[in-house]
Amino acid sequence: MDEIKLIEIKESILTDNDIAAEQLRSRLKAEKTFVVNLMSSPGAGKTTLLLQTLAALKQTYKTGVIEADIDSMVDAEKIRAAGIESVQLRTGGFCHLDSNMVKQGLEALGSEGFDLVFIENVGNLVCPAEFDTGAITNVMILSVPEGDDKPLKYPLMFSTCDVLVINKTDMLSLSDFNMNTLYGHISRLNPNMNIFEVSAKTGDGVKQWADWLKQQVSDFLQ
């Protein structure tokens, strides 16, 4: 019998992606392209909010979109119909985007000329939280019908994002969603999170979010 030996490895499993993401972020800073990674459950309102946000920002910044629909062009076509350049990444059932896929998306878009690029990540609250895309800021959308207990079920997502947009606030009166309960969970998980309450349908609150983002991009571009 061969003797069994113990070999120390001590390596992070995500190292490759983390390093690639950091490199991409440095490049984006040098090229002055602000990238926003949008994450949420399917149907929380990423595309609808994106369209509203683009309407508020496209006059000020040259803006593009990277779409990561699992296997359709539906969202990318909506964005294009609004006059915004977009590319569709075929994720082919992949559950998240990693920084290499984002890099490909930026190349397809020709990112150098863009001030602001949005990524619509794959709709799920688990996998995208583990993979740094290289984006400058990470935003998650939680919609009212999903419930105020989501931070308890998806703590990693809530703790890694810089911004929470609470969407579909027009449906608050129809549900038992409790804003105070949600804020209580967030203050424990991620006290520095920027929170916006919006309805992408009625446009309520979208201006506050878009103004905040405009300020971030303006600071970044200076």
């Binding site: 030996k5 070999i7 490895i9 390596e11």
Partner: peptide, 9 residues
């Protein structure tokens, strides 16, 4: 998210 060690022959 770490690989700590492995046992090998």
């Amino acid at each position: 998210y770490h690989i700590k060690e492995m046992e090998a022959k």
